[in-house]
Design a protein around this nucleic acid. Sequence first.
DNA 1: TGCATGTTCAACCATTTGGTTGACGATCAA
DNA 2: TTGATCGTCAACCAAATGGTTGAACATGCA
Lengths: 107, 107
Amino acid sequence: MSQSLDTTFAALADPTRRAILSMLLEDDMAVTDVAEPFEMSLAAVSKHLVILTKAGLISQEKRGRVKWCKIEPNAMKDASVWMQSFGQFEELDMDAFERFLETELGV
Amino acid sequence: MSQSLDTTFAALADPTRRAILSMLLEDDMAVTDVAEPFEMSLAAVSKHLVILTKAGLISQEKRGRVKWCKIEPNAMKDASVWMQSFGQFEELDMDAFERFLETELGV
DNA sequence: TGCATGTTCAACCATTTGGTTGACGATCAA
DNA sequence: TTGATCGTCAACCAAATGGTTGAACATGCA
């Protein structure tokens, strides 16, 4: 169930949430581990995860005490399609992708 | 000059602004004409246009009394690329992507 | 049982956002 | 010059956003 473009774009507008998505690209993570690198409270990160979940960008599953977060890349599809309707950048642009890696991940 | 992902995604998160972009896809428009279909004040639409301009998603040029608005589709490129870096996982093999990151970028 | 760990909840706060209105400056046209 | 039109500005407002803290709940373990 893809969410509205409102919800998706709003969720992606926050750098903390985009960083979380990048982290989850590597592997599924527990909430506490997601929060670790950020200089904000666990509760704040937990709220970000709720927003990402409501946007459908991640899913959360509780196993025991631990709640695991998993990225849901399909949720970005509608938004991606919307943007592509503006044309001219359909294919993955490697230069731009590398710039993204530099700025977002510090690679 | 593409703006930050923050600014771009935040600009795209509002339905009025996305509607404006769709309208401008058809043709360049004057501010008053952009505002016409919306049930809000001209000042409110004018503010939306400022936000779109700051995000680099449109440009504005004054000719005489009239300020013309023009879409700048390239501004969406970075954001689109960012999203596609996730969307690729639908079609592409994740292991292959990670090998790509290792070999191409040394991540 | 009892304590430590993982996570959320509730209340609160400051800032931002998206809207309003009325006044204003700039431009065109008679 | 005198209006009418185009668009922004300034002040204001309600609601949403992103953060805090402390308490609470749920689970695992000695």
